[in-house]
Design a protein around this nucleic acid. Structure first.
Length: 247
DNA sequence: TTTATTTGACCTGT
DNA sequence: ACAGGTCAAATAAA
């Protein structure tokens, strides 16, 4: 309805994407280097940090790419974004289905038949499945055939409030129990809420999710621990206006 | 008291 | 029939 909020020009976005790609590569190199640290504790801590850096890069890349895709095809044409170590497809093989519930006699939209857009999925392998700076709420857990660990189901913490964010993720611990354990995380749908959680900051009362506009270039990276200057009240005042932020 | 998580039931697609 | 995904009542935690 409302006109889409102003976005950075595409050339700026492309430049940012390029920089983020470079950052991702550098993080990969850095990881190789820190893996040479002889002390186990320090090595693991460093590897974890580098992984987080890489994830932050990925998230930012994904956000920017989602935006540029949207600017080309608003109507949810099949998106093909390749992002670092994550694969991205318009129908991630597992084809997330919408369930339905009889108990509540709710009529829910069925899975897209012909012409209905498939959910956007993105799969990554990570040691820290929680650490993607979005507020997730667990809604299910399931034993999966031939999987050693149960699969956990999360939806965006803003799925129930006004923004009706459709984003979900499935977390599956890899059976080869490496140390630290690896998790296969499948993201379903983009975030429409642009919310992130900053563990170091107390969440505000009655609105546990913090609404941050990731598209705002003035924002410091959420990766910086305890990053100051995030005035989310300002975001609230500007009513956030639903950026399609992706991850 | 409110909010988040757990868990068994039930759904859909294959 | 089975596997995977979702719901919502029950429960736990804040």
């Amino acid at each position: 309805m409302s006109p889409s909020p102003s976005r950075p020009p595409s050339n700026q976005r492309d430049a940012a994407i390029q920089e983020l790609r470079r950052g991702t590569e550098l993080a990969a190199r850095l990881r190789q280097q820190v893996e040479l640290i002889p002390e186990l504790d320090r090595r693991e801590a460093a590897v974890a940090n580098v992984s987080e850096i890489a994830e932050a890069m990925e998230s930012s890349l994904f956000i920017l790419k989602s935006q540029s895709e949207h600017s080309f095809s608003e109507a949810g044409e099949s998106m093909a974004v390749q992002a670092g170590y994550g694969t991205y497809s318009s129908d991630g093989g597992s084809s997330a289905r919408n369930g339905a519930v009889a108990r509540a006699r709710k009529v829910r939209h069925r899975r897209g038949r012909l012409g209905e857009e498939a959910p956007i999925t993105k799969e990554i392998l990570t040691e820290a499945p929680e650490n993607d700076r979005f507020p997730w709420r667990k809604y299910g857990e399931k034993k999966i055939l031939n999987a050693e660990y149960t699969r956990l189901y999360y939806k965006c913490g803003n799925s129930d409030n006004h923004s009706k964010c459709p984003a979900k993720k499935y977390v599956q611990q890899q059976s080869n129990s490496s140390n630290p354990p690896l998790f296969n995380v499948t993201f379903i749908n983009e975030h429409t809420c642009c919310s992130t959680m900053f563990p170091d900051e107390p969440s505000s009362r009655s609105d546990s999710s913090q609404v941050i506009d990731f598209t705002n270039p003035s924002l410091p990276s959420p990766l910086m621990e305890g990053a100051p200057g995030l005035t989310q009240e300002e975001e609230d005042n500007t009513s956030v206006s639903m950026h399609s932020c992706g991850y």
